[in-house]
Amino acid sequence: MTRSEMDLQAWAAGYNAGAQGKAPVEGAYDNYSFHCGYDEGAADRAQAVDREKAVLSFIEETFEPDLIKVEDFELFTHGKQVMDREGKFMLVFFDLLADDVQQLFPDEVLH
């Protein structure tokens, strides 16, 4: 086995463990870092969870839950499409540059 093949196997082992929510494999790459006993990606994953919670909290605080339908909108970071009963919708997402939840009304952008 070549060094490249060993590196690829180590990366795959770490990536697959992370994707399954398992503890990282020591000496394997995960999708963030090379593990040498320290999980650098844990802070990034925790921050992503916090951002997702911020988007969902904004939606819960702004709308009556039984009057809207919420779907994932993956073109934006933690994006959600919020649609009302009339079929009008807005996008709610976490803006990484502003470090805050933002909303976008596609009808206003298109006109």
Rank of each mutant, 00 (worst) to 15 (best):
R51H: 10
G87V: 12
S57E: 02
K88E: 12
M90R: 10
A17F: 11
D100S: 00
L97E: 15
A98S: 01
E26N: 15
G14K: 08
C36A: 06
V49K: 15
T77L: 12
R3F: 15
V49G: 02
L97W: 08
V55Q: 02
F76I: 03
V101C: 01
E26D: 15
V109R: 14
F93I: 05
D107P: 01
R85M: 14
F58W: 11
E61K: 06
A28E: 11
E74H: 01
E61T: 03
L8N: 06
D95R: 06
E5A: 14
A98R: 02
V109D: 08
G79M: 09
T2A: 10
G87H: 09
F89H: 12
A23P: 02
T77R: 11
Q47R: 13
I68C: 06
V92T: 09
K22T: 05
A17T: 09
M6F: 08
E61A: 02
L56V: 01
A46Y: 08
E26H: 11
V101Y: 01
M83T: 15
H111T: 12
P106C: 07
D107C: 02
G14L: 07
P24L: 12
A10S: 14
D95F: 06
Q81V: 10
E108V: 07
E86Y: 08
Q47L: 12
N31R: 07
G87Y: 11
A19W: 03
V92M: 09
A13Q: 13
G37W: 05
F76L: 12
G18F: 01
F73L: 07
E40G: 03
Q102E: 03
G27P: 13
E26S: 12
Q102F: 03
W11K: 06
A23G: 04
G79I: 10
V70F: 11
R3E: 15
E61R: 04
A23I: 09
V101R: 02
R3H: 14
